[in-house]
Design a binder for these strands. Structure first.
Length: 405
DNA sequence: CGAGATTCATGTGAAGTATACCTTTAGGCTTAA
DNA sequence: AAGCCTAAAGGTATACTTCACATGAATCTCGTA
């Protein structure tokens, strides 16, 4: 066994590679946001009227993940709040990610969550939705304020529950006497806005901003800048920044990913008692990030989702063990799923529901499930695993233990 | 041989049900005057 | 009589079930060359 005490002693003695780790964490907002000056200036211009307590136009932001949408809006709203504080304006900014399961993924939950942020307790279920709207408007009327509502990944709610919610939100202003709301919608899906009702569209996207992806050179600059602040001098090995940038550029210029890659690589280097961050740690970091992401998603899923996923993994294992790389279909999974339910004492759901669950697992990116027709032999989903094998092993073990199988 | 009909396994939409939770209301009990 | 607690009634959101119909290409059928 390793001598823990010695390890800890060494660790304490050793200088950290990091000077300021916060700078690389995803919730960090830097003072300057490189290559987004235009967007930030525009945003500031559009939102500035809020400092005179005039309602700014609603805004719609487009752009792939990690192109700085969230960062830019956070940056601008932070500054606005600071200025507002100086003159004691009742200006509120609420940021909400609509993708969060069980928090803001339906109309009821979204409005309820906003009200909660404003300090009003709302039960998770039981109230009529318009009752929740009433409570929400009541808070606004009682405390005269200007509310900037930032709805991230707004396309997700609409995909799930229709665009009624957008209509209601945009209409809200005409009902409010004392307070006003501006909505900032953020979407990764460029086609999204064209699918909503034209009336809603015109009022929701009074202003539109597009965030183009960063290219590899820009990513390098960003990484360089942040790494200078976050790491001690000269711990970054040859070609590390370039490799991080290249990785991220491959993924449609995702800067968040690039920074995370660098941070995790740093942590790995530190753990390995390395003096420098070498290129090999980036490969490891890539793997670790993906593993953590998947494990995080899987572990927060409801039980039935876990059993379904476990059944898929098991079936895929059986197939490869028997040597035949057979395709996986819904029917096979359902049979196996029922068995597994029996084993862990859970009441099986219907195949209808499992079909939906498989589709949702596909949306989460853990598996790929495409609807295909096998001609004479019917129609089904062909399922393949969406993550590398070394990770599925881990999930498999985790689920097995978690479900008591 | 080829066009059109058939077929299968399950996708998919709509409507219904179960569950968990909500508010309101009415009755019963306690309390204080 | 007023105040407080409790339980029933009547309501909702959400996850799931039930029912019925839709899908789409491999296979079958049958007329024709």
């Amino acid at each position: 066994m390793v001598d823990v005490k010695n390890f800890l002693r060494d660790y304490a003695k050793k200088e950290s590679l990091f000077k300021n780790k916060k700078v690389l964490q995803s919730n960090y907002t830097p003072d300057k946001v490189p290559y987004r000056e235009d967007q930030i200036n525009l945003l500031a211009g559009i939102l500035a009227p809020s400092l005179r307590m005039e309602r700014p136009s609603n805004i719609f932001l487009y752009g792939k993940t990690g192109t700085g949408k969230t960062l830019a809006i956070k940056h601008v709203t932070d500054q606005i709040l600071e200025v507002a504080k100086e003159s004691n304006l009742n200006l509120r900014v609420i940021y909400l990610n609509c993708k969060l399961k069980r928090i803001a993924d339906t109309e009821y939950r979204l409005i309820a969550q906003i009200s909660r942020e404003l300090g009003q307790d709302i039960p998770p279920t039981g109230l009529p939705t318009d009752e929740v709207y009433k409570i929400f408007t009541k808070i606004l009327e009682e405390n005269k304020m200007l509310l900037l509502l930032v709805l991230d990944e707004i396309d997700e709610v609409v995909k799930n529950t229709g665009d009624k919610i957008l209509y209601n939100l945009t209409r809200l202003n005409s009902e409010l006497k004392n307070s006003e709301i501006s909505i900032v919608g953020i979407s990764n899906d460029l086609m999204f806005i064209d699918q909503v009702d034209p009336r809603v569209k015109s009022s929701l996207s009074e202003e539109e901003l597009v965030f183009p992806p960063y290219n590899a050179i820009q990513l390098q600059k960003i990484l360089k800048e942040r790494s200078d602040i976050s790491f001690e001098k000269s711990v970054i090995g040859e070609g590390v920044i370039e490799k991080c940038a290249a990785y991220a550029a491959k993924e449609h210029g995702d800067a968040r990913r690039a920074l995370e890659l660098l941070r995790v690589a740093g942590e790995l280097a530190e753990r390995n008692n390395s003096e420098k961050i070498a290129v090999k740690f980036i490969d490891q970091a890539e793997e670790k990030i993906e593993r953590d992401r998947v494990i995080d998603i899987v572990s927060t899923q409801p039980k039935q989702f876990k059993i379904t996923l476990y059944s898929i993994l098991l079936f895929s294992n059986l197939c490869s063990k028997n040597g035949n790389s057979q395709d996986i279909y819904t029917g096979d999974i359902y049979e196996l799923y029922k068995e597994n339910c029996l084993k862990c004492g859970t009441k099986p759901l219907t195949q209808r529901r499992i079909g939906d669950i498989i589709a949702e697992l596909d949306m989460l990116g853990i598996i790929n499930a495409r609807v295909i027709s096998k001609g004479r032999y019917g129609r089904t989903r062909r399922i393949t695993l969406g993550v590398p094998e070394n990770i599925t092993k881990k999930i498999n073990d985790m689920l097995k233990e978690g479900l008591g199988l």
